[in-house]
Nucleic acid binder design. Structure first.
Lengths: 116, 116
DNA sequence: ACCGTACTACGATGCCTATCGTACGAGTCG
DNA sequence: CGACTCGTACGATAGGCATCGTAGTACGGT
């Protein structure tokens, strides 16, 4: 099968009105998580956790994805053995218009700056 | 005297190219500091540390202002016994265009939302 | 010189968190 | 069923941090 069905085990996500700006900023203030979010923003579909090549162990990776999900930045769903991740872009844009765009642009600028 | 001179004791500030996005986000991910920044953004001039009425002790207030300064979000200068604080808005705008505007707008929306 | 105000320095405390390793559960494929 | 992959859970560890209280420094005014 090329596209396994969504598994029954689903994960808790905060509702839109439970997403706190402080939580989002805290989630993005970690270099590893900012990197994950930038990568997610750069593709159209979803990415599995193992699509990321991060310089940390799998346990730590799991931890970072959970922080992102619990802060409301990403949405996660099981598809087979894989756990697919997607930015909650639409919801965040409605909650905080222009914020994600400005953040992603800022991250891109910093990554392109000579100091990097 | 209505406007005492700037004191000789000056404080270390990061240069523009030393300001890290992660550091700025971390600084703003604390409710107390976000509140300080929002207040600073709402006035034209500078504010002394004691102009803020925060529900923490002065030691803790000092700590928060230092975090904001060391992350590059605010500029601090002694004027007499007072320590004046101002947003580094121009520099941040050049570094990360639109970021502060989006952040302040997001904070304002959250503060105006029913959940608050 | 003295006092009061504004802010700091330092130590303590309790909590949070980024990281790891190992052991385990869920699903897919042979 | 059995092997393999993906991701989780749990415990440990080390470091960071928000908070406080107390003692101290710098400056301005009397």
């Amino acid at each position: 099968m090329s596209s396994p069905a969504v598994s029954s085990r689903d994960l808790p996500h905060p509702a839109c009105d439970e997403i706190r700006l402080e939580g989002v900023l805290h989630a993005l203030s970690d270099p590893m998580r900012l990197r994950i979010v930038r990568e997610l923003a750069g593709v159209t579909g979803e990415l599995s956790c193992s699509d990321f090549e991060l310089p940390v162990t799998k346990s730590t990776t799991t931890h970072h994805f959970r922080v992102l999900r619990e802060s409301g930045v990403i949405r996660q769903v099981y598809r087979g053995t894989a756990k697919m991740n997607g930015l909650r872009r639409d919801e965040l844009d409605e909650l905080f218009p222009g914020l994600m765009a400005a953040l992603l642009d800022a991250a891109a600028r910093q990554a392109a700056s000579p100091g990097d």
